[in-house]
Amino acid sequence: MQTNEEFVKRLRKGAYGFVNLVRYTNDDNSSYLAAVKNSYQKDYQSLVREIQVLLQLKGCPRIVTCLGDSLQQSFSRFGEIHKLPLEYASEGSLNAFMNNYADRKLPEPLIKDLARMILEGLVSIHGHGYVHCDIKPDNVLVFPSSSTSSSYEVKICDFGNCLEKGEVPLCWEINFPWLGTAIYMSPESVRDGIADMFLDLWSVGCLVLEMYTGVSPWEGLELDDIATRLLSGQAPEIPEILPSDAKDFIQTCFSTEPEERGSASELLLHPLLPRPQVEGEEEETSNSFLLNLFKLRTRRRGSEKKVTTDAVSDKKPLKLLRFWKKKATLFKRTLNIVLRLKKSTDLFSLVFVHQGLARGFYS
Score class of each variant (00 low, 15 high):
Gly233Asp: 08
Glu210His: 05
Lys105Tyr: 04
Glu219Asp: 14
Gly127Thr: 11
Lys42Trp: 06
Ser189Met: 00
Asp28Val: 07
Glu283Lys: 14
Lys58Ala: 15
Leu67Val: 14
Thr228Ser: 15
Ser186Met: 01
Ser263Lys: 05
Ser145Val: 10
Asp224Gly: 08
Thr256Arg: 15
Ser244Trp: 04
Pro144Val: 03
Ser189Tyr: 00
Pro85Gly: 02
Tyr24Val: 09
Leu94Arg: 05
Val123Gln: 10
Lys13Trp: 06
Thr65Lys: 13
His354Cys: 05
Glu120Phe: 02
Lys315Leu: 09
Gly180Pro: 01
Ser145Ala: 11
Ile226Met: 11
Phe249Leu: 07
Phe249Lys: 00
Ile250His: 04
Gln277Phe: 04
Cys133Glu: 02
Ile156Thr: 08
Thr256Pro: 04
Lys325Met: 03
Ile135Cys: 06
Arg300Lys: 08
Ala115His: 02
Cys133Ser: 02
Glu120Leu: 13
Ser146His: 09
Ser74Phe: 11
Leu357Tyr: 02
Tyr212Phe: 15
Leu223Phe: 12
Gly356Met: 10
Tyr362Asn: 01
Thr148Asn: 15
Arg297Phe: 06
Pro109His: 03
Lys343Thr: 07
Asp28Arg: 04
Leu114Glu: 02
Lys325Asn: 09
Lys37Val: 06
Thr3Asn: 12
Asn29Trp: 12
Gln52Asn: 15
Phe352Lys: 13
Tyr362Thr: 04
Arg10Gln: 13
Thr148Tyr: 09
Glu281Tyr: 12
Ala311Lys: 09
His126Leu: 03
Ala358Thr: 14
Phe289Ala: 13
Ser70Tyr: 09
Ser30Met: 09
Leu242Thr: 05
Ser76Thr: 15
Leu170Cys: 10
Thr228Asn: 14
Val278Asp: 06
Leu320Ile: 09
Ile63Asn: 01
Asn139Phe: 05
Gly180Ser: 02
Val22Asp: 02
Lys316Tyr: 07
Thr25Gln: 08
Leu330Ser: 13
Leu223Asp: 15
Cys206Leu: 02
Gly360Ile: 11
Cys253Ser: 07
Thr256Leu: 14
His128Glu: 12
Glu279Met: 08
Lys136Tyr: 02
Ser255Pro: 04
Gln355Met: 13
Lys315Val: 10
Arg299Cys: 06
Cys171Met: 11
Ala115Met: 03
Phe159Asn: 09
Val142His: 01
Gln2Tyr: 09
Arg297Gln: 03
Ala35Phe: 00
Asp27Lys: 14
Glu108Pro: 04
Pro169Trp: 09
Ser30Trp: 12
Pro236Tyr: 08
Lys105Ala: 08
Val64Glu: 06
Val22Arg: 12
Asn287Cys: 10
Cys60Phe: 09
Ser70Gln: 15
Ser363Arg: 14
Ser30Tyr: 12
Pro236Cys: 07
Leu163Asn: 08
Phe249His: 05
Leu347Ala: 11
Val307Glu: 11
Ser186His: 00
His82Ile: 00
Phe198Thr: 15
Pro177Trp: 03
Leu55Tyr: 00
Pro85Arg: 01
Gly127Trp: 12
Gly160Asn: 04
